[in-house]
Amino acid sequence: MTLKQRLTDDMKAAMKSGDKQRLGVIRLVNAAIKQREVDERIELDDAAVVAAMEKMVKQRKDSVSQFEAANREDLAAIERAEIEVIQGYLPEKLDEAAILAAIDEAIAATGASGPADMGKLMGALKPKLAGQADMGQVSALVKQKLAG
């Protein structure tokens, strides 16, 4: 079952059960997916759907920090609840050891030897780790590996 199909099925289940909060978040996700499909005139695959959902999580995390800075805990709580629902559809995040193993594997495959090869290495890692790791963390670990 594709991720889009799972979202549709969960939306129907949320409608039947009367879970308005979950239904609202799933509708937001579906709207973001549909908007991207219309804008780009393509059918999104699971990887692109995951990328869209990760962007939504990032936006909500930014909102949480802004709401907390403005002492609006009520709004921050709503954003946190939305993050929780969206993250339920995202793949499990890899731990640092698994990321380091993927980096070592990519170094062996690409022959990267120094900081100048970082772009080539990140290009090899991004499709492999997309949705499973924070690419900022991956970038920092790659820099560390190539420098040391």
Rank of each mutant, 00 (worst) to 15 (best):
G136Y: 06
E105N: 02
R27L: 12
A102P: 01
K128R: 08
L7D: 04
A98T: 01
N30G: 10
L44T: 13
M135V: 09
L3E: 08
L90C: 13
T2I: 14
M118P: 01
V50T: 12
A98V: 05
R6D: 14
K34Y: 13
D19S: 12
L94T: 00
R22S: 09
A116D: 10
E84P: 04
A77R: 15
I33H: 04
M53D: 03
G114Q: 00
D74S: 14
A81H: 07
V49F: 06
L44M: 13
K145R: 14
G18E: 09
L90H: 06
A77Y: 13
G148C: 02
L28I: 11
K34S: 15
V138Y: 01
R6I: 12
D39V: 03
A147K: 12
A14S: 09
V142A: 00
S63H: 05
K55N: 09
A106P: 09
L75R: 11
D104C: 09
A101R: 07
R36P: 07
A98Q: 04
L3P: 07
P127A: 01
D62R: 13
L75M: 15
N30V: 13
I99T: 03
A13V: 09
K145W: 08
V142P: 03
Q137Y: 13
Q35K: 11
Q66H: 09
A52C: 10
Q35W: 09
M118D: 00
I78S: 07
M11Q: 15
A52L: 11
L129Q: 00
S139P: 03
E105V: 07
D74N: 14
F67T: 07
I83N: 02
L141W: 06
F67D: 04
Q137R: 15
K61R: 15
V50W: 05
A108Y: 04
N71Q: 12
R41P: 06
L141Y: 00
A101C: 04
A69Q: 05
